[in-house]
Amino acid sequence: MNIFRLAGDMTHLASVLVLLLKIHTIKSCAGISLKTQELYALVFATRYLDLFTDYISLYNTLMKLIFLVSSFSIVWYIRHHKIVRRSYDKDQDTFRHYFLVLPCFLLALVINEKFTVKEIMWTFSLYLEAVAILPQLVLLQRTRNIDNLTGQYVFLLGAYRSLYILNWIYRYFTEPHYVHWITWISGLVQTLLYADFFYYYFQSWKNNVKLELPA
């Protein structure tokens, strides 16, 4: 465990907690894409299949449980909570995210480190995580007005993946056999998807104006 990875995990945890806090306190999910949340729940469900088989550390198991419970709770809140669901704007959240699932699965069947069920599901979850933010970014572009909690949520998600890239660089230089091209390329693609959001986020922060994404 290195500082980049710990910081990455904490940032990732913060992003999920910010979102849960927003939905739980103001009982609203305005500006949040349910599709992205469903994709994230699927990412964690397919990535943490080894939750009960491979014990790595208490930290690892604890974090996996937190991510699983929080991501499914967020989906439940938006879909079933009597007050929150009213603020879900399904007419705007129209990204056909099922079209992301199949290509990621097919790609995982073709490009993986080992042709086993667990490894293919793990690789699928990596590819899916890389594109899971797309419905949310499309929704942000559509609704234009980004409330700062949603902006912080997306920012923290991007920051977590950027820190993971530093973690992979660190591990590459410190651990002789640490080579995971699939993880690195997928993580890089994911981070690049956030690049333009970061640009506009910093612009709005620097000029102290409301965050607006170009249509």
């Binding site: 995990d9 080894d50 790595i56 690892n60 996996k64 973690n167 056999h177 993880t183």
Partner: peptide, 10 residues
């Protein structure tokens, strides 16, 4: 224990 191929990252 972390075997070689298992993934130790979240």
């Amino acid at each position: 224990v972390v075997t070689g191929d298992s993934h130790d990252e979240l």
